[in-house]
Design a protein around this nucleic acid. Structure first.
Lengths: 146, 146
DNA sequence: CTGACTGCAAAAGGTTTGCAAAAAG
DNA sequence: CTTTTTGCAAACCTTTTGCAGTCAG
């Protein structure tokens, strides 16, 4: 529905008074490349091109990119949040508590549920941010043979 | 379905070779009292009775209590998991990204969605652990007047 | 008694901040 | 030239760990 913003991310930044820097470009590229990257992982990718970039710059950049709506993050585990591009955000993370595997499913599956939440309590779900914890099919099978 | 284990939590511990200590009793009581307590908050409550109890004891105890299935936790924010008794686990947390407010809704609302996940990818959801991020009705209203 | 549990202090992991130098517009 | 952004180092916060003493069974 919404236009792909792939080539106008810099415009989005500028609109809000932010400046375009190589670091921001690299961080965004890394987020896109990794799909589910933690700040640390993003840094590593960025440093392949620009070794001097600092972790705090990554954090600050991720914050800015989120603010202008180019990326989102989801908490899929205990430690590190993961970031992805907004266009990739239309899926839901299923996190296995046992093996840690993350499965993605189409967000359409959750639509009735999301509508129910809106109707019931007026809650507007951030779809790209949803992560469901539980047990994946593999680990269930394993548990059966316990 | 399952019998309430309220008065046999100590038996559950003993079955697994764990010992019953005042600290564990107090931590469990604090979890029940707080409903959605973070480790720090739980510590505070415990210290009302036993001031010498250490934070690390709280962490270790929470781990044990989870392992025997007396409590669960959910990640509702960045840094702070919250813990609740298993009997209280049949609700879903809606976390507002803006004001941080946590709304609870009955897990029944999610049943079709949970079944869809089971059917689609064989994923068994840990219902008490589900937290959905988004924007609560209040913050949406506020945003409209921006 | 004996092994599990606790308190303490230190370490570890992740994120944030202050500041002066560097870069964008 | 002005203001934002960056790199660095240090601070911070939450959680984990090692260890010796303590306590439950």
């Amino acid at each position: 529905m919404t236009e792909p913003t792939t080539d106008s991310w810099d415009a989005l930044l500028r609109q809000r008074g932010y400046r375009i820097t190589p670091q921001r470009q690299l961080v965004l590229a890394a987020v896109n490349e990794l799909q589910h990257g933690t700040p640390e992982e993003i840094l590593t990718v960025v440093q392949r091109t620009a070794a001097a970039v600092n972790l705090s710059t990554v954090y600050r950049t991720l914050e800015v990119l989120q603010e202008v709506g180019v990326i989102t993050h989801a908490h899929i585990g205990h430690g590190a949040p993961v970031f992805h591009a907004l266009e990739e955000a239309t899926h839901i993370h299923l996190v296995c508590e046992e093996c840690g595997k993350v499965t993605s499913i189409d967000a359409a599956v959750a639509r009735p549920f999301i509508e129910a939440m809106r109707d019931l309590v007026g809650f507007e779900t951030d779809v790209g941010h949803v992560s469901i914890h539980g047990r994946c099919s593999d680990c269930q099978t394993a548990a059966t043979h316990e």
